[in-house]
């Protein structure tokens, strides 16, 4: 990691990419990401507010998912990927060599576009994380974590009679809520969601959005979505990316009623080209 003195947002970003220091859960300063020669993220500085939903929006290839994956070092697994700049979680540099990446990813969990339950039972899907992280004390403790996580993910009522059925036997929406239950079972502080509803029907989508509303009381959520209406519905802050740059960030209400930047307006209103 390279460290830079300046905490200022780059000249290109308009709006309010920063929140008050006390409210910032994650802070990215001057982050650049390279895939080999390709400069995928350009000097992005952005705060993620505590117990808030932050939506990252932008056209395909704008770098929103790449940026999100920097927040729990998911990019580490890509050999040619190089990240510079600083990202802190509660003030702690997550790219510090002393950081245990497995532990970091337990604190900053992730839910993917396509529901990806393990080929195991519903119970085991949720129990897996707490077990390997040693979070449960005994069988009863583990069971409690599983049931609580399923309940918080709004899935318990639907699956309580078939906890030992395969996770893959659930519907798409249920599978996604199972993945959310799996993510929250290890008590993360932040949940990253990469297009969590793009494979779901409108009813399953509404249930996930309702869940996001509830989860934000206990977790900090970052969501990447192609559905601008979804960003408008679920988030408090919205960040708009374009060609690897953070163009604008601000309160979702302001972004959707009166965006400051021409590009944001063009993208939101469907005048992009």
């Amino acid at each position: 990691m390279t460290y830079r003195a300046s905490n200022d947002p780059p000249h290109g970003t308009v709006g309010a990419p920063r929140v008050e220091a006390a409210r910032a859960k994650l802070t990215a300063c001057n982050v650049d990401v390279f895939y080999g020669e390709k400069h995928a993220i350009k000097d992005v500085s952005l705060d993620i507010g505590r117990n808030e939903v932050t939506a990252l929006i932008g056209p395909s290839g704008c770098g929103k998912s790449t940026f999100m994956r920097c927040l729990n070092r998911m990019n580490d697994i890509i050999d040619i990927c190089r990240v510079t700049g600083t990202i802190t979680l509660d003030g702690e540099d997550i790219y510090d060599p002393k950081i245990d990446v497995v532990h970091l990813r337990a604190r900053v969990g992730m839910v993917f576009q396509k529901p990806n339950p393990f080929p195991k039972s519903i119970f085991e899907n949720v129990a897996y994380g707490p077990r390997i992280h040693g979070l449960a004390s005994g069988k009863a403790g583990l069971e409690e974590i599983v049931l609580t996580s399923l309940k918080r993910a709004g899935l318990l009522e639907e699956v309580k009679d078939r906890l030992h059925a395969p996770g893959t036997s659930l519907s798409g929406g249920q599978q996604q809520r199972l993945c959310i239950a799996r993510a929250i079972a290890v008590s993360p502080q932040v949940i990253l969601m990469d297009e969590p509803c793009s494979a779901l029907d409108p009813i399953a989508t509404a249930r996930i959005e309702e869940l996001i509303d509830e989860l934000q009381h206990n977790f900090t959520i970052v969501i990447v979505t192609h559905s601008m209406q979804q960003a408008a519905r679920v988030s408090q802050r919205t960040a708009f990316f374009h060609l690897g740059e953070l163009i604008e960030c601000g309160m979702t209400e302001q972004i959707f009623t009166n965006p400051l930047h021409r590009l944001t307006q063009g993208y939101l209103t469907g005048r992009f080209g």
Binding site: M228, Q229, A232, F256, T257, N258, P259, T264, Q265, L268, T269
Partner: peptide, 9 residues
Amino acid sequence: RQPVAIDLR
């Protein structure tokens, strides 16, 4: 159309 921004206004 679910308009936003200047279209909404």
